[in-house]
Structure formats: C-alpha cells, structure tokens
Design a protein around this nucleic acid. Structure first.
Lengths: 229, 229
DNA sequence: AGGTTTCTTAACGCTTTCTTTACAGCCTAT
DNA sequence: ATAGGCTGTAAAGAAAGCGTTAAGAAACCT
C-alpha cells in the first residue's frame, strides 16, 4: 500500500524537493500549485495526505483547509514559513492535522507523514452513529435508546445516557469506578462509588431484560463495571 | 463530559503551568511525575490525552510511549526541550501523535490538543493484552480468565486475580512470600504466609485442572511460589 | 412561582470476599 | 522412626462491597 501524497506548493524548488522526498520514501506524489487545483485534485485523485504550503498566491491556504474539510477527511499537513501563533492555531482549528514550520528536517516531516498515515487507516470506518450491545441499541445523534426485539423506545436521563455510551464505547473492558467518575463528572468526582451504584441500578432497570440478574452491565467486584456486547 | 488530560512531567513549575492551561480551557488535568505512575494512571484513570515530557528522570519517555501503546490508543503529545531530529523521529515512530518543542506557545499547544481530541473520537478500541500460561489465559482489559481447551470462563475474586497476574508477569521466577504480600497488600502486609496460602489454594481450585497436584502454581518450600508457563 | 424531572446522599439487607483459626498430611533432619 | 516445620484444606466469623429504596436537594421546564 503506497501512500498518495498531494503537494500544494508554488515554489518550484520546494516542489521538487518534496516530490523527491516522498518518492524516496516509497510514496507517490502529485503536485499542484494553487488552491483551486488542489481542491480539484482532491475530488479526482486518490489522496491520503495533503502537504500544504500556506504561503500560496491567490486564495489562501486557510481557505483550502476549510474547503477540503467539507470534501473529505484527508489528512492535511501544513508546511509554512509563516510561523506566528495565529497562523498555526487558525490552520489547526480549521481542520489541519499538523503544522510543520519552515525550515524543517526531512526526517521529521516523513515521521509526521507516517503519523498521519497511521491515524488515517482507522478513518475508513466512519464513526458509528448507532451502537449495539445484545438487545440494546443506541442512536448517538438522536440520543434514542431501543431495547428488546420489538425495539421499544426507552427514556434515559442524561447521566444514564452518558453512562451507557461510555460503557458501550469501551465494551468488554472493565472501567474502574475512578474512570467512570472522571469521564462523567470530570475532576469534580469525589472518588466514592455510591453515586455510580445508584445510576447503574437505574440504568439496569431500564435496559436489562431482567434487572435482578443483569446480562449487559456486569459488576467486577472491587474494580468497576463492564458492558458485555 | 470534558476531556481528561494526563500530564507526565517532573518540573513543578511546568506542572502547574500545564494544569492551569488545561483547566482554563475547560479540561480536567491530572499530574504524575514519573513513567511508572503514568502507566499506572492509564490503567485506573479515564484519559483522553497524555502530555509527556521526554526529559524525565528514571525511565525515559520513549519507554512510556511504547508501553502506553500496548495499553491503549490514547493520544500522546510529547513536550520536550530535546529537539534533535532523532528525538522527534523516534518519539513519533514509537507511537506519539505529536511533538511540541520547548519553548512552546500555550495557544499552539491547546490547538494541537484540540486536533488530538478531534482525531481521538474516531476509535477507542485498544489492543487487548492477553497473558497465557499452559491452559490458562487472562484478558487484562476485560479481567476475564479462561481455563482449559474449551476456554471456560472462570470468575476470580480481586485478590485471586491480582495474585494470578502477579505470578504471570513473573512467570518461571520464584516470588517470595514477602514479595507477594507486599505486591498485593502493600505496606500493610504483616509478614505471615498463612493468608497467601489460603488464596493460592482457592486460585488453584479455579485454574488448575487437578487442584490436588498443581502444574501451574508451584510451591517452592520455605521460599514462596512460582508460576510455570 | 409551581410542578416535574433528575441528581445526590444516606441507610439497610444481602451477598461476596477476606481473614483467621484449626488440623491433617508431607517432607526433612536428627 | 519421630519430631518439627512447612504446606494444603476446610470452616467460621469478620469485613467489605453491592443492589436497592427512599427522601431531600437541585435543576429544569413551563
């Protein structure tokens, strides 16, 4: 699997340097010299990573980032000689994945490309909007919870809902009382397990087929809880 | 449900600076000052992002990165004054997600934290660590223990579980009564071996194929116990 | 403000787990 | 062979942890 790199850069010297660098690392590189051409390439070419020079003539690189984000989740690594905080922060917040100041070492750039590729591989599976475990399914966007074969809608309080999706996102793993407290109440969490016990009980009342002998939310004595999927 | 930041940093001034920075951004921050404490915190605390100072005394930050990667996919942002290419590349290739050189601007660090949080929502499934010895396998993340060819699930009490993984992590080595006692009961351990004998017996009842002639947990008369893998 | 929902806390019974004690069997050394 | 120390097992009491209920506090929504 050789990665496809899209280089958006107008300086010919830097163009050839980046192309050579990428190809020497076994990746295939394609160059465009404007934001418009870059956006067009994103729609027609298979692209794993964009290397973007912020200092382009015409439309700014920041525009490219936000426009590209509406098109795809491709990783964007900004390369720029404009190294003010403002440039970095706006680029990263607009959707860039990394920001490498010029001058940069080729080894570091390649390492950061490898990081982006590593992250990119898990992106293929889109974030699941619906979580399932046994006879329970949760719609994250509508915050609705169905139970049983007939998919009866159940109303959960905010805390119960947070608790459920927390356990679901870590299904089959034991979450310690500490983890649960921190995830739901943040730093303000005192450390006692009593609160959690009550909310777990109420959650079980609503989602377990037989709350007195739970099959979904399982207690691990002395440690915490585990959701079995 | 705000982000939980684990700060691994030994310098008190930098500690408080980072804590203040994170909390001013509405995130929960927690500080440890060593690699070992950091790894322990990863197992007991809910953590979205690690801020790691590479220049720690004792075990190096690089060790933390690779060890943490076997535990979870938590995002790791390295903060370091050692800014050679070598440091950056090895840290990134070991599994770090970003590398911020000191001195850094607080705005940039926060922006890079936001990037990591954005990426982190994609997937949380960590590689599950499984220990094996003969016909016994232990899943550390789900705390489940299987025995025999049919992989029957066995329930262990907290003490039995701790005892088992302690022996497994030092398999084929003899652990003295004192070592076992201190590892499981800490400083409160009195020094008598009677407690240990009872728990070993109950553990054997559950994991040995023939508890009366054990093949896994072997007694070393006058010294302690040894687990043969 | 009134009423409703939700959260937090405390209490209690029940179960699980831990600790202690006692004793029998085994091995070793005298 | 026997005494002494060490190990394995069983049982009972103590302690801790969990599930549940109820009541007051807080937040939320008309």
């Amino acid at each position: 699997m050789s990665a496809n790199i899209l280089i958006i850069e107008d300086d010919p010297a830097m163009q050839s340097f980046l192309v050579t660098l990428c190809e020497s690392a076994g990746m295939s590189a394609r160059v465009v010299d404007s934001v418009d051409a870059g956006l067009k390439a994103l729609q027609t070419d298979m692209t794993d990573i964009c290397l973007l020079d912020l200092g382009l003539p015409g439309r700014s690189g920041h525009e490219f980032i936000s426009a590209a984000r509406t098109l795809s989740k491709v990783a964007i690594i900004v390369i720029s000689a404009r190294n003010t905080d403002f440039d970095k922060i706006t680029a990263l917040d607009a959707g860039a994945d990394d920001y490498v100041p010029k001058p940069f070492s080729s080894g570091e750039l390649l390492a950061r490309i490898r990081v982006a590729l590593r992250n990119g591989t898990r992106e293929i599976t889109a974030p699941e909007e619906i979580l399932r475990a046994q006879h329970v399914c949760v719609n994250l966007s509508s915050r609705q919870v169905c139970v049983g074969a007939e998919e009866v809608l159940v109303h959960l309080t905010p805390t119960e809902f947070n608790l459920l999706i927390l356990l679901m996102k870590h299904s089959n793993k034991v979450l310690t009382y500490r983890m649960i407290g921190q995830a739901i109440w943040g730093n303000a969490y005192s450390g006692s397990s009593e609160k959690i016990r009550v909310h777990i009980a109420q959650l079980r009342q609503k989602i377990e087929l037989n709350p007195s002998s739970p099959t979904i939310v399982i207690n691990e004595p002395g440690v915490g809880y585990r959701l079995v999927a």
